[in-house]
Simulated scan of single mutants.
Amino acid sequence: MTDAVSGTSTRKSSTRTAGKQASGQEPRSRSTGGSKRRSRPGPRQRLLESATRLFTTEGIRVIGIDRILRDADVAKASLYSLFGSKDNLVVACIEELDKDWRRRWEEMCADRPKPEDRILAFFDMAIADEPKENFRGSHFQNAASEYPRPDTDSEHRIRQAALEHRRWCRDTMADLLTEKFGYASRTLADQLIVFLDGGIAGSKMSRTVSPLETARELAKQLLYTAPMMYTI
């Protein structure tokens, strides 16, 4: 009697399973796996994310192609078809870091209408970033320092990509200074960018934000005393 009931239960279970398979339903684990595969970033994005993480935490020159490919789970052929070379990938990573930095600066400045507050946002961003980045310093300074005397066109492009970020910071500061004071302020922008460079380098060495806070205070003093130094 018990065997008969058990057999009936087994047949019903089998019938339900067969019905699910016939209707196209799959076990939950398979569905979840498929969803993860569908939401997975494409090869280009995975390469950029892996390379950026490795370059910024360990350095550019010490990271080989094979390490990036393993981390990104991408075939070598895909890397060369998408970027052409490791150096091109480095340039792309630096450009993406620059775009992200500019975007975050714009977001920080959304509620800062005064030009002087927008200038100080450069320092505020660095103060916020350094502890989160384990005091590694500026990714752009670090990249440029790995190629102090570039020998190839690719190395020149890597260095130029890093310097482009610094040029944008300086030019943006200059425009904001002109907006504040009503006259061209390239020299003041040069001083401010030196404050920022020095603050970042000092924080990297001391592993504290104190040098950046000092740099911010120097920038603030300059912003409020500069009109006394010039005849408008």
Rank of each mutant, 00 (worst) to 15 (best):
G7C: 05
T8A: 12
T8H: 05
T8I: 05
T8G: 01
T8D: 07
T8W: 04
S9F: 08
S9T: 05
S9D: 08
R11I: 14
K12Y: 10
K12E: 11
S13C: 04
S13A: 15
S14T: 09
R16F: 08
R16I: 14
T17G: 03
T17S: 02
T17I: 04
A18G: 06
A18I: 05
A18V: 07
G19I: 02
G19Q: 11
K20P: 03
K20I: 03
Q21L: 15
Q21A: 15
Q21T: 15
A22H: 14
A22Y: 11
G24W: 03
Q25L: 10
E26A: 10
R28D: 12
S29Y: 05
S29A: 15
R30T: 06
R30V: 10
S31E: 08
S31W: 02
G34P: 01
S35D: 00
K36F: 06
R37H: 01
R37L: 01
R37A: 06
R37T: 05
R38P: 03
S39Y: 01
S39G: 03
S39M: 06
R40N: 10
P41A: 09
G42A: 09
G42W: 06
G42H: 10
P43E: 13
P43Y: 13
R44F: 02
R44H: 05
R44V: 03
Q45C: 01
Q45S: 12
Q45G: 07
Q45A: 13
R46P: 01
L47M: 09
L48A: 08
L48Q: 10
L48S: 11
L48K: 10
E49T: 14
E49W: 04
S50V: 08
S50C: 11
S50W: 07
